[in-house]
Amino acid sequence: MTYKLILNGKTLKGETTTEAVDAATAEKVFKQYANDNGVDGEWTYDDATKAFTVTE
């Protein structure tokens, strides 16, 4: 299944996707991606759209 990450960081904005077996796996991938790019903020998840959002 495809999951999307929407980044609303102070220095990094954009979107990326990942293929994962479930939302928990996608969340781990996205949190590592955000951490690697220096984005740390409030996380939300919308199951209807399979989209995670992180806002700094």
Rank of each mutant, 00 (worst) to 15 (best):
A24V: 10
T18S: 05
Y3K: 01
A20N: 03
T11R: 09
K50W: 05
K4M: 08
M1S: 14
V21N: 11
D36E: 13
N35M: 15
G9A: 08
K28W: 09
A26W: 01
M1F: 15
E15Y: 12
A48M: 12
D22W: 03
K31A: 05
K10I: 15
T11E: 11
G14A: 12
V39S: 03
L7W: 12
A26M: 01
N37C: 13
F52Q: 01
N37S: 09
A34C: 15
F30P: 00
Y45H: 01
W43N: 00
T55E: 07
L12T: 10
D46W: 03
K13W: 11
G41N: 01
G41W: 06
V39C: 04
M1E: 12
D46V: 04
I6G: 02
D47G: 08
T49G: 06
T25E: 14
K28M: 13
A51N: 05
A26H: 00
T16C: 12
L12R: 06
A20M: 03
T2Q: 09
V21Y: 12
Y3L: 02
L12W: 14
K10G: 08
Y33T: 03
A20I: 03
K10D: 08
K4E: 04
A23P: 10
K13G: 05
V21I: 12
D46L: 03
T2G: 04
A51F: 06
I6N: 05
G14K: 12
V54K: 00
T55R: 06
V21G: 09
E19A: 08
A23V: 12
K10P: 12
V29A: 08
D46C: 07
L12M: 13
N35V: 14
L5E: 03
F52P: 00
A20Q: 07
A51M: 13
K31N: 04
D47F: 09
E15F: 12
G14Y: 14
K13P: 05
K31R: 15
E42S: 11
A23C: 10
G9R: 04
M1P: 08
T44A: 09
F30H: 00
G9I: 08
V21A: 13
K50S: 05
L7E: 02
N35E: 15
L12V: 13
D46G: 02
M1Y: 15
G14E: 10
L7M: 12
A34H: 01
L5Y: 02
W43Y: 02
K28P: 03
A51D: 03
A20P: 01
E42R: 09
N8H: 10
G9E: 03
L7N: 02
T49W: 05
F52N: 00
K10L: 15
G38R: 06
K10W: 13
K13A: 07
A51W: 06
Y45N: 00
T16V: 15
W43S: 00
N35I: 15
A26E: 00
A51L: 14
D47Y: 08
T49N: 13
Y33R: 03
Y3C: 03
K4G: 03
A34N: 02
T18W: 07
T2F: 08
T16L: 15
A51P: 00
T11M: 10
T11K: 11
Q32N: 08
T18Y: 13
Y45R: 01
Q32G: 05
G9W: 06
V29M: 09
D47R: 07
G38S: 06
E56A: 07
M1N: 14
D36F: 08
L12F: 15
G14S: 12
A26S: 02
L12I: 13
N35H: 15
T2E: 09
K10R: 12
Y45L: 02
M1W: 13
D22V: 02
D47P: 15
T16E: 05
K31Q: 08
V54C: 10
F52G: 00
T18A: 07
T55P: 01
M1R: 12
G38N: 10
A24G: 08
A23Q: 11
N8E: 07
E56W: 12
T16R: 13
F52I: 01
D22C: 05
L5N: 02
